[in-house]
Amino acid sequence: MVYSIKLYTQIIAKEAQRFFTYRVNILSGCLTALFMLGARYALWAALFAAGNAGQSSLAETMTYFVICDIIMIWLASSYGNTIGEDIRSGDIAQKLIKPCSYHLMLVSSFHATSMTSTLTRALPMFIIAVIFIGLLPPASVVTLFVFLLSVILGAVIYSLIDLIISYTAFWLTDYWCLSWFKRALFVLFGGLALPLWFYPGWLYEVCKYLPFQYTIYTPLAVYLGRIPSGQVVFSIALQLLWICILFLLERIIWMYAKHKMTVQGG
């Protein structure tokens, strides 16, 4: 365990060092985040100006998107590209025989990128949003803690779904399309492009039976008080249930994927 933690911190340090070498990319990432924020604000301000917002408000919607973007920057893993590239290049054969879990290496590497991206992209976005747009605070300290717990559970669900989709790379000769499929599913069912309370009833019903909304929408609905306090525990329980189901599914697919593996490079 101690060895794993030491390895984890070393991988994070090295990845962070690599990330900060590309300063233009950091600047570009920061600019992208700010453009995204500006575009979102202009779009939603123009929409709310039409005056047909119903129960929602501009401040609530912008708070939803700013926190959503920050969580997505933190979660910006793309296991599909990494696993696919490892298979294509043959590196996966070397990585699987190392005295360290392949998954631990993947997670450590992405956490390093997540931490550095959060600092260089999410933080400037958050500061600008707080100063110029004004974000809604959580209803109470308890809500904040429940929100943080829900975000962590959502991150686990996101990573498990990402891994399950990424394992398709073992059966494909090309893998770049996996991230497109993943994004499409999260945009449609996860509330990435539009909070679920704006969805038509039938689509919202479909989303309820899928795991995608539990990654982003549920934590944000908790934060914004869209889930009544009596149902918050039920939502957290549903997140835990999805973690169990997805973890089981991930293990089964990984077992088959390892046997299917064909290393083309090397």
Binding site: L47, A50, L178, A184
Partner: peptide, 21 residues
């Protein structure tokens, strides 16, 4: 993958504007 991604992107854009008129 791209049909799905862009199809959903356009559907979301339509839904956003449709909600507000």
């Amino acid at each position: 993958a791209q049909w799905l991604a862009y199809g959903i992107e356009m559907m979301m854009l339509f839904l956003i504007v449709w909600n507000f008129g």
